[in-house]
Nucleic acid binder design. Sequence first.
RNA 1: GGUCCAGUAGCUCAGUUGGAUUAGAGCAAUAGCCUUCUAAGCUAUAGGUCCCAGGUUCGAGCCCUGGCUGGAUCACCA
Length: 597
Amino acid sequence: MSIESIIKGKVVEAVNSCYGQGIDDDTVQIQKTRREFEGDLTVVVFPFLRFSKKSPEVTANDLGSFLMENIEVVTAFNVVKGFLNLVIDSSYWISVLNTAFQSENYGFKKLEAGAKKVMIEYSSPNTNKPLHLGHIRNNLLGYSVAQILKANGYEVIKVNLVNDRGIHICKSMLAWLRFGEGETPESTGLKGDHLVGKYYVKFDQEYKKEIEALVANGMDADEAKKQAPLLLEAQEMLVKWEAGDEEVVALWRKMNDWVLAGFDVTYQKMGVDFDKVYFESETYKKGKAIVERGLEEGVLYRKDTGSVWANLEADGLDHKLLLRDDGTSVYMTQDIGTAYERFNEFSIDEHIYVVGNEQNYHFQVLSLVLGKLGYEWSNKIQHLSYGMVELPEGKMKSREGTVVDADELMDEMVNTARDTSNELGKLQGYSTEEAEDVYNKVAMGALKYFILKVDPKKNMMFNPKESIDFNGNTGPFIQYTYARIQSVLKKTVDEGIEFPEFANTDIEISEKESNLIQMIANYPVIIKEAGDTTSPAQIANYVYDLVKEYNQFYHDFPIAKEENVELRAFRMVLSKQVAQVIKSGMELLGIGVPERM
RNA sequence: GGUCCAGUAGCUCAGUUGGAUUAGAGCAAUAGCCUUCUAAGCUAUAGGUCCCAGGUUCGAGCCCUGGCUGGAUCACCA
């Protein structure tokens, strides 16, 4: 039981004993005592004034006396206004450290039978162009949230829904047929996704030329956009594809394979993976049966022209199309179908979709329609909506070439990490392979941390110059602290000091050390909060605060060089435990930590 | 126009059950600290109308109402 909950319980008793009032645990507020006051934990007494009918100071003193008598580890207290500051004995904190130190997977809940089962869908790329910065945020968020939910004891299934069909794919295919001259990834040395992306851009260029030509001949601009031969041909191709035309399907398969092979490389570099991959080419017709049933039950309605709609006016929205006049499905129909299948097939308790905030409306509608159709799990689908990534020059536009390519960005980060490391003269004595592994960890750590430290729902600014900065609130700053701890601990081994199994609780420790233990004690709480709010940013900021605190400690206190053996043992345990929490927290973000850098 | 989200230091961001006369970090700026465990570090100075106006109360960056600014969205596209 944590010290907070013990104090809470005793405060309830104290109010009862002093004022004869029964109160609820939740009315007791406990917080960390602010730096400028003496004490470790603070009870806010304002809520109890209506029971005590005394001034805040007197009330706080009443409660303080009771707590000191009834909780062994409370050794002193002081009162400032309505705040009761409690001093907790250092032996208590050291025992907390020992407990953390001796537990395996500290802060994590184990996966137990009957655990909550969560499916999380992320990435969801289109197979007509390579991944860009926006996808990076999506992938990192999805992967990290999955890690965090696992740490909360959930069973997690990571899935990817690949959008491998539609007019945009046909555009790349058509451009390649027309202008590709048989190029392949092998013949060009390009990654498959980049090769296909090249022709997607090519399509757009040629398409624009056709429009201009038509307009020059006197056609209306809007009409020209619809009548351009290339577009018509692409649409024709899509019809052929849906009809199963052998040639088109074969080409589609070939180019999709190129792209998917390219994605695999990118995913691997990014360090994300999936338990199951779905393809829209296989799921896009799903959901029709469900819609038909909804129609029979009168939950949905059919227009004269034949299309099927849901009326969401009662929920403050408009009408939403579910089947076209010709009876074909739309995006929403497909999502209804796949959601139904997933809840049935895997009997999941919750489904999280990691999708950009431009689709907030879509997911709001999805949940409402599923509710109308009578599925009790309609409120178990959660849209983890994240903001756009903006560049200093403005927005990213794939057609205008102002995107930041994922592969290029990652490569650049690695180069910068390599240069910086060499400049600083680190890693001497490492083999090339070992060194490359470190550059990779540092580079990806910088990129991942930079993105994940921001609250998901906010739009974020990606400044390439700042992102490769390795000082301050960055991934490498955290990794560096970890590496430094490893270095010190290695030194103790070299000097023949045996690593202690636990720290002696009788020693005197400084305020800085006590603070560090209290932060460690808070780690499980942070994991839970990050899970409840599906926010990796909470982990990121926690680890940063911990590291900042540790660096100050490191600067001011000797560890391996401490002469007092008991104290040295304590600091070794403390340092090792801080390192463990850093490593563990970074794992939750999908970031590796090097032993040396 | 309707709906949703955001607005905190020059810049990028923390600040979640409302708590301490003094709202925190980093970057950028200035000034210090390497014969002592990794200086990718530490310390100090400076930098604020928490978008605005009301309201709720012992107490509001946080809650409520109204407004301002920016973004997203409202397709027989996905």
